[in-house]
Design a protein around this nucleic acid. Structure first.
Lengths: 221, 221
DNA sequence: ATATCATTCAATTGATTCATTGAATGATTG
DNA sequence: CAATCATTCAATGAATCAATTGAATGATAT
């Protein structure tokens, strides 16, 4: 009785243990952006290739990612399960804890930078209305492997020099990889300083995709 | 940059690590049923009191549970955050993995015992229509600290002897602690054998409560 | 106040996990 | 078929975590 119970819980615990490493979570976050090779992931995460490979295999054993061979490379992508949901539940809980510590739980309007954030639902409404420019500030590579329909791509480092590409009037909504990616925060800071009406999308590309919403692809490896 | 990133992920990893122990998950599951003292939890989980206490403190540090003093005892209850959501995301993923291994993913009707299961939404509809008897097969103690409105309580061990208390006609819906609690499965087996029209609720009491639905309490310590 | 009892703390030991290194695998390319 | 290159495997020492024990805390009750 408690024996069978414990066995089930051991299984859950194994899953949790696989997530209990900052490096693996970081790898997952990068994989959530699209397919990546081991070498690229190692580079993105600052790990040795062998080490990255081992972590990736743990993630695969737990079903969080899947692999595919393309020539000499092995490409990793997210698993088909509710991986994003699991990660976002973790995020939510962490956020709740932070709010708890600061003594503000029921209140939803307590994060100053959140004032600039816009939800997916709100964005969809605005897009239908028109007059909104979607700005993807991720690197070209990530943009190419998938982005929100109609978005224009200006990587954050180039934003300063390429302001001309942005429409003078109308509102801009910037997004990047997700709530804990700093790129869109930076974009809001930069653009706000230049007098643009800009807000950031609360969630990022992976969540958008996971929600089953339309995605565009560029033709680039 | 990667420094700040890593710090955030360390935080997530800590949360995951706290869940990465079958004993702690088991404790959480018991706490999800209602407030419990350390002694009771140790007994329920087969741990020494000191050991249980340590695990409980880890859970508290991570914000999964909260405590309250009542006389000599310290009572543990679930935290206010999305704990249940996190646990159920874990469950979902585990279930997905299992299905994956058996080569049936897209298919939703592959679990024979699931044919007997009814969702919360469906239950709510049926209850409005009437003719449905809700049967709580958890121990009296757990029933007393909270149950579904209108449910009758017959602990699973007594079910055999107390069949008379069940209405002859109409459908019975049995529930217990949740999808990985075996009690309601047993109830279906027993009652089905006696010719009752019986199904089990897919989710259990904790999920019901977490969904913000009405809950009844008995007057019992 | 003091005794009592549930709970928590502190310290030890044993078991896992992590990153690193160098070698082995396995698929492509000439 | 041999060479090449990305990835994986295997083994090591350092670091971290889990369970156990006995003592300390903190609140009640006589």
């Amino acid at each position: 009785m408690t024996d069978v119970q414990l066995h089930v819980f051991e299984e859950f615990a194994d899953l949790a243990r696989t997530l209990a490493s900052a490096h693996r979570l970081l790898l997952l976050e990068h994989i959530a952006q699209g397919e990546r090779s081991v070498e690229r992931l190692a580079e993105l995460s600052g790990l040795s290739i062998a080490n990255a490979s081992q972590h990736l295999q743990q993630l695969r054993r737990a079903g969080f990612v899947e692999t595919r061979r393309d020539g000499k490379r092995v490409l990793y992508r997210l698993g088909t399960g509710p991986v994003i949901g699991l990660l976002s539940a973790l995020r939510q809980h962490a956020e709740h804890n932070r709010a708890q510590i600061q003594g503000l739980v029921a209140d939803r309007l307590h994060r100053p930078d959140r004032l600039e954030a816009i939800s997916r639902e709100e964005l969809l409404l605005r897009l239908r209305g028109g007059g909104v420019t979607l700005l993807d500030v991720r690197p070209e590579e990530e943009f190419a492997s998938g982005h929100l329909p109609g978005a224009i791509n200006i990587p954050i480092e180039e934003l300063d020099r390429r302001l001309a590409e942005l429409p003078a009037g109308g509102e801009i909504v910037a997004y990047c990889r997700g709530p804990y990616c700093a790129l869109s925060f930076d974009a809001v800071t930069v653009l706000h300083g230049r007098g643009f009406a800009v807000r950031r999308l609360e969630s990022g590309f992976p969540d958008w995709k996971a929600a089953g919403l339309a995605v565009e692809n560029s033709t680039l490896s």
